[in-house]
Write a protein that binds this DNA or RNA. Structure first.
Lengths: 199, 199
DNA sequence: GCGTAGCGAAACTCGAACGTATCGAAATTA
DNA sequence: TAATTTCGATACGTTCGAGTTTCGCTACGC
């Protein structure tokens, strides 16, 4: 059984230190540093922790950053499954909340931003955090296309691009400060109805 | 008059070297390196050029990268001004062409991606390259809202987010390879008409 | 031909950060 | 209490790349 912490001899690892390290990492990212500019030494200093304490837990910077970013994720919301509109809003609103707060915005920027190198934080974050959400959105769109709520000729990828793209756009280049609470709703409505004057 | 190259004494700077440097820079970025991973030494080696020759022209890496990225920009297209749809397609298609080729895609990713630090390449690229395009799109949307082609209650920023966001989305996370030629058109049509089934 | 300035190559100095090792102190188990 | 492990701090050796300098050579104007 590994459910028990397997009380080994010796001083146990400090949870406080661990949290301080993750907080420090997110702090620094929130200040606008990219992963490349992050340094373990700066993180250690900010967290009030020795470098040893970091290296004892993470093998390298990328692993630490991926873990730190992961702590910001909310779980996928349950979907009512009644209307496509409501489900899409629910899904986008999770991201809106995450991207919507000043600190998280920088963090998400980093997540999207890192170059496509092998170890790339961006690639790993995409797999871990984005992929499942995109799949959920895709599923809702497919359902809507099948049951007549959406255009029967809808290109699912195009719908996904409009919805996700707009949200990312606001997160990256929208006005400073928190994103408005009704943003997800407005994006979904615009995407559903289009911006042209209705006939 | 500064129109004349002001033939100074001494050996003139080699245009060939300059082009080789820019090509090498773009090559390396296209291979997936972020600005942080780029090194002047690697660029010099790739270009078959001495580091001196680079430092004689650019004060630092960031200046070089900004210049290199700038060479990939197409000028804004002339707008027919007849229909909002056509003008939007024309504007988005410029970006589609730029983002659409494999090499350029990496480059654009880098341009969008860099963290928001002061010297940041991303910030500078945004000012130089994106801002004017966004302004043009905004103008077209405003015109359409005024003349009845678009929803009179349209939120211009939302329209911009849908259009630009979708395009960026495809550029960043779309399928590998070149983007399809009709992508701009399809994005515009979906944004205009919406993805819901028309009543 | 002379002066000047750019050329590529190489050697150089310098600072930043990595990752490791070591310290004495603190926290825990047996 | 003894053994063990982590703690923060600090020092260390190493690597890497920035940016500079020097070199012998080359291309241009005059």
């Amino acid at each position: 059984m590994t459910t028990q912490p397997q009380a080994r001899a010796g001083r146990p690892r400090s949870e406080k230190a661990e949290k301080a390290i993750i907080e420090a990492t997110l702090d620094l990212i929130a200040e606008g540093l990219g992963v490349a500019e992050l340094t373990i030494e700066a993180i250690a200093a900010r967290a009030g922790v020795g470098k040893t304490t970091i290296y004892r837990r993470w093998a390298n910077k990328e692993d630490l950053v991926v873990d730190a970013l992961a702590t910001m994720r909310e779980p996928l919301p349950p979907l009512a499954g009644e209307s496509v509109r409501d489900d899409l809003i629910a899904l986008l609103d999770v991201v809106r909340r995450e991207v919507g707060h000043r600190r998280a915005r920088c963090v998400i920027n980093v997540a999207m931003s890192e170059a496509d190198s092998p170890k790339s934080v961006g690639k790993r974050f995409f797999k871990q955090a984005m992929e499942p959400r995109l799949t959920a959105i895709r599923r809702v769109l497919s359902r809507g296309r099948a049951n007549g709520e959406l255009d029967p000729d809808l290109d699912i990828d195009m719908g996904l691009a409009l919805l996700s793209g707009a949200l990312i756009w606001f997160g990256r280049w929208g006005p400073e400060g928190d994103l408005p609470e009704d943003l997800a709703e407005r994006i979904v409505d615009h995407a559903l109805e289009g911006i042209a004057r209705r006939a």
